[in-house]
Write a protein that binds this DNA or RNA. Structure first.
Lengths: 197, 197
DNA sequence: GTCTGTAGATTGAACGTTCATTTGATGGTC
DNA sequence: GACCATCAAATGAACGTTCAATCTACAGAC
């Protein structure tokens, strides 16, 4: 696979992202994806085994981008976990509001039967994402900064509020102001920080 | 429309719910819905104008059930808002874990293009749901029990964490124990309660 | 520098299937 | 016999996928 073909894959990904957000998975025919990407239908099948495979790979692609953005250049100082936390959470919101097509796609993906497939795939091939939100939260517990409870519960607070907030912004219920973003981060931090005795 | 036809509508709703959660909207043909409901395809079109109309009405049906359950028999005493809050939040979780097909359908609905249609419909015909979560939260602010911030932000905490928690339970990441549920409610309350001065 | 062979990339018409919706007939009720 | 409910076959459009043909790039021969 040479440089050109990487471009083609990218073009297919972007085209799919744009169309999916308005039409959904089954509402987006391969022919339309091809048209938008300015290639022919057959070419898609040169790069992806099937429509389903395209979606699965697109998901990995999006997730990798998000995770890369969240944790890039984070210099974690032990006594600055709270600041670090605020940065990561804010990045989560900013990434998704800046690239709403990514967000809407991943959101659709997670609430679709594809999610189940992804889950099963992960069980067979575990331990691939080492820089996940989960391990970031785990570190917070170790550093005695976060409530000593299950990672899953902390994750519900972190991700749940972030996703919900991003939705509010994208769907226009809330405007994206610095002040409100900071207040939202406060809510999140209040809920899962370790109480000082 | 007599009693029989109400039963038929109900049967169609239930059949659709069951099939949609595993196959998604476009992966669920009308023929299959009919088969599962033990009626013929044509009959569905007697009760619903189209597949799309069926989905939209199913959403209203589900939402009404959820809201009815959340706020039934709540005797709101002014000085017991916190308790009331905990009851309502817990009910939100219980309803959705008890009826996962409702949850998964609504979740799909919210992350699909249908949501946009619903939103537009709502704009044209506002003020229909008076017993919504939003007004419950608004009351909390009035009673000086919740942080004095925008309803949308409070809603992100309430709904965001609840949805995320229900997902964890349904997808088997977290088991549903009383202790954990209570801890989760604590997180939510901590994040949005009014700080005592 | 030109020619040639080859492997991969690209095309889009064609195929077979599936689906939402329509329709006209049939059964039941008052 | 009028009206509503129900049925299942028929319709026609749309879709995912395939494939034989065409194009492109480039390495080696001379």
């Amino acid at each position: 696979m040479n440089v050109q073909s990487t471009d083609k894959r990218e073009a297919i990904f972007q085209s799919t992202l744009v169309l999916l957000q308005d039409n959904g998975f089954h509402g987006t025919p391969m022919s339309q994806i091809a048209q938008q990407a300015k290639i022919s239908v057959g070419t898609i099948y040169h790069y992806f085994e099937s429509k389903e495979a395209l979606i699965m790979e697109l998901f990995s692609y999006c997730k990798a981008k998000l995770m890369g953005y969240l944790f890039e250049e984070t210099t974690l100082t032990e006594d600055q976990y709270e600041q670090e936390f605020r940065v990561v959470w804010k990045r989560f919101v900013l990434f998704n509001t800046d690239y709403p097509s990514y967000f809407r796609f991943m959101n659709q993906f997670y609430s679709s039967p594809f999610h189940e497939m992804e889950r099963l795939r992960k069980l067979q091939q575990p331990g691939e994402d080492t820089t996940s939100i989960q391990s970031f939260l785990a570190r917070g517990i170790e550093l005695n900064q976060l409530r000593d409870t299950s990672i899953q519960i902390l994750n519900c607070a972190f991700t749940g509020m972030a996703v919900s907030y991003v939705k509010s912004i994208i769907f226009g219920k809330v405007s994206m102001e610095q002040q409100q973003l900071d207040e939202m981060i406060d809510l999140v931090w209040k809920s899962i920080k370790k109480e000082k005795v």
